[in-house]
């Protein structure tokens, strides 16, 4: 708080504010102040007695009002429990059916108004998609047209998507993370959350642990394969990252937070997502600045079909995959325990 003048109420600003609030003339305030100073004790007592009487009358009136209100509310309650519930239920059903039918009709109307599928003159068969299909492989070097689309032609959009994931993970961290106190000791809430988690966690379940021993490496390898092969086959950063995140969650479920936190902490999350997003932004900034409109960007496209090809698409896929995997893991850990 900043320092405030002790006589603030009588400054120009204070009087102006009071006048604004209550509609008093500033002169009245001055007059009343003066009168209250001039008043002697007996007048004060008489005044306070009158005020007390007025308060009593007001409170009686208030009580009467609340009694009336109470009886009205009770009648309303009884009505809503017997007859009103039926009416409200019927109205609810009617309104929901009306809403559904309206939405269905609107959507059907839109579908009817859309151009027919497969007609040569329809706007979906314009020159843009034709150009993507015919020259996409040559321009981006990616065999998978979708990867070339989302990570080369429309890479800016994908950067926004990854940033949305990062922001979502940050928001979940802010909302659900249970912090330690100032000295670094765990708080009561954290201890309670860990106790609750321990009672529900499938602890030392040999069946789960055995299957996780077999499955986790396979799942992680498959996720890495999907990420690295994103420009050659269906897949890419988003789906591969989701698979890697699922593998991490499986490991966490089988072996618990103590073992999972050896390789995944808040620092790991911050480092990986920050590096991925900044590399993505820098690489695409360079590419937009130097490589747009057919300018030579100096990044070799390679032969389409080999694993080290298609320029920036492979590293960008890796970045997106890491962000997605970290986000999935953080979401799971936060919603389960409120911490890693």
């Amino acid at each position: 708080m900043s320092k405030r003048n002790s006589n603030w109420g009588n400054t120009l600003q204070g009087r102006f504010l009071r006048w604004m609030r209550f509609g008093w003339e500033p002169m009245d305030v001055l007059l009343i102040d003066k009168m209250s100073q001039d008043r002697d004790e007996s007048v004060n007592d008489a005044l306070s007695a009158a005020e007390n009487l007025r308060d009593l009358q007001l409170s009686e009136k208030y009580n009467a009002d609340t009694a009336i209100e109470h009886s009205i509310m009770q009648e309303l309650d009884e009505w809503s429990l017997s007859k009103g519930r039926k009416i409200v239920n019927r109205l609810y059903a009617l309104l929901s059916v009306t809403l559904c039918v309206t939405v269905i009709l609107l959507l059907l109307e839109t579908v009817i108004a859309m151009p027919m599928r497969g007609v040569a003159v329809s706007p979906t068969n314009n020159e843009v998609s034709q150009r993507y299909i015919e020259e996409g492989m040559e321009e981006t070097g990616a065999v998978n047209i979708v990867a070339g689309m989302i990570l080369d032609y429309r890479a800016f959009d994908t950067l926004g998507e990854s940033t949305v994931l990062f922001i979502a993970a940050c928001a979940v961290l802010i909302l659900l993370r249970i912090d330690r106190d100032k000295d670094g000791r765990p708080t009561q809430e954290l201890i309670a959350a860990e106790e609750d988690d321990r009672s529900h966690e499938p602890k030392s379940d040999r069946i789960l642990q055995g299957s996780a021993m077999i499955l986790t490496p396979v799942v992680l390898l498959f996720g890495i394969y999907v990420v690295l092969n994103g420009h050659l086959s269906p897949g890419g950063g988003f789906s591969g990252g989701a698979i890697i995140g699922a593998g991490l969650i499986l490991y966490l479920n089988a072996f618990g937070f103590a073992k999972a936190s050896r390789f995944f902490s808040y620092k790991t999350f911050a480092l990986i997502t920050l590096l991925s997003l900044s590399f993505y932004a820098l690489a695409k900034a360079y590419s937009f600045y130097c490589g747009a409109n057919g300018l030579p960007s100096g990044i070799p496209l390679g032969t389409p079909g080999s694993i080290l090809s298609s320029g920036l698409i492979l590293p960008l896929n890796i970045c997106v995959g890491m962000v997605v995997a970290c986000t999935m893991y953080i979401f799971y850990a936060m919603f389960r325990k409120g911490g890693i």
């Binding site: 499938p202 379940d205 069946i207 789960l208 299957s211 077999i214 499955l215």
Partner: peptide
């Protein structure tokens, strides 16, 4: 491997 373990859990 995965689905019986899920049912078991």
């Amino acid at each position: 491997i995965a689905s019986p373990v899920g049912s078991h859990l």
